[in-house]
Simulated scan of single mutants.
Amino acid sequence: MRINFDFNDLEAFLAVMETVSFHHAAERLNLSQSAVTRRIQKLEETLGSVLFDRTTRAVKPTLAAKRLQARAEAMLESARETTLAMRDESVAFAHQRGAVVTVAMIPTLVHPLLIPALQMLHDKGLPVRLRLLDQAANEVAEAVSREDADFGVCSIGLLEPNTHFEPLFDDLIVLCLPQGHHLATKSKVTWADIQSESLILPARGTGNRLLIDEAMARSRFTPQWAFEVGRSTTAMELVNEGLGVALLPRTSMLSSQGRGLVYKALGAPVVARPVGLLTRISAPDTSLAQAFKSALRETSAALRAS
């Protein structure tokens, strides 16, 4: 059975029961008498019962109305208690919700960009409760577009149409080598130098791989890769074990895992991924999100200068 009445109808019913008058019930509810009448009629149609016997002189509740009264009062009281409880909970946790920011970010940017920004906010006395979604670039774009994140930090890739990309800096793709590798002593490394190396490349379909493939096509360089991996951290593990050399963003070398490795800039064509802030178009920022973005802009300025 479809329930076709609401709390306003019950409120009008109880007002008529208490005043025994459609006119006085309308005055109490600040409604027209015809509006009260329509609400009572809707209740009667839904319940299939007449609730009031009306004459020109009096309004008399029926047996159905008397049976409904206690239940209507209980329903309205339960609704009021639920509303108050929800409001109290909202007030109690409002300061926490306002202090939480959800950021979607490429994992390789956590150490060089996110951690210094967090430290900057801490030094300014701004408490931060961070929900971090460390994902690939395309997943970051999806998280921002779906409103799963307040904003994102990623390289430009397959951006969603309702997002805006604000460039922060260009992150060079460099050659990552183990200590003692014969290319580590060269002052300049070319694409031809890695022709015979055991090459570790990002997985197909990722933003980094698309940039690398375009560069190799321009230089007519067709190496036989040995490994395709989805994460820069995995590539660095393989390099650390001497299993190959990897093409990775320079920022990944700034992580604790990359500090023991050697990186070399490659000659023309130079490959760089643009890194920036990704936000939803027309979505207002909280004060904390604004402060966080400002800190990331300052942090990225140091990376541009290095």
Results as ranks from 00 to 15, higher is better:
L109A: 14
R129M: 12
V128P: 00
N138W: 05
N162P: 00
A149Q: 09
A117E: 05
I156C: 12
A99V: 05
H122N: 09
E160C: 10
E142H: 05
A141P: 04
A137V: 04
V91S: 10
F93P: 00
D134Q: 14
P161T: 06
L130T: 00
M105Q: 06
G98I: 02
D150Q: 07
Q135F: 10
E139P: 02
A136R: 07
V103E: 07
L130W: 00
P161D: 02
L118D: 00
G125L: 03
A141Y: 05
L118P: 00
A104Q: 06
T163E: 08
R146D: 14
V103R: 04
P127T: 08
L118I: 03
D148P: 00
L133F: 04
L118F: 04
C154A: 15
Q119S: 11
S155F: 07
V100D: 03
G98S: 04
L132S: 03
T102F: 03
A117T: 08
L118M: 06
L130G: 01
S145G: 07
V91T: 12
R146H: 12
V128M: 01
L114R: 00
L118Y: 01
L126T: 15
V144P: 01
T163A: 07
C154W: 08
Q96E: 15
V128Q: 00
G157P: 06
D134S: 15
R146L: 14
Q119C: 08
A117D: 06
L159I: 11
C154L: 15
E139A: 15
T102M: 09
A94H: 13
D150L: 06
H122P: 00
R97A: 10
G125Y: 03
L132T: 02
E142M: 08
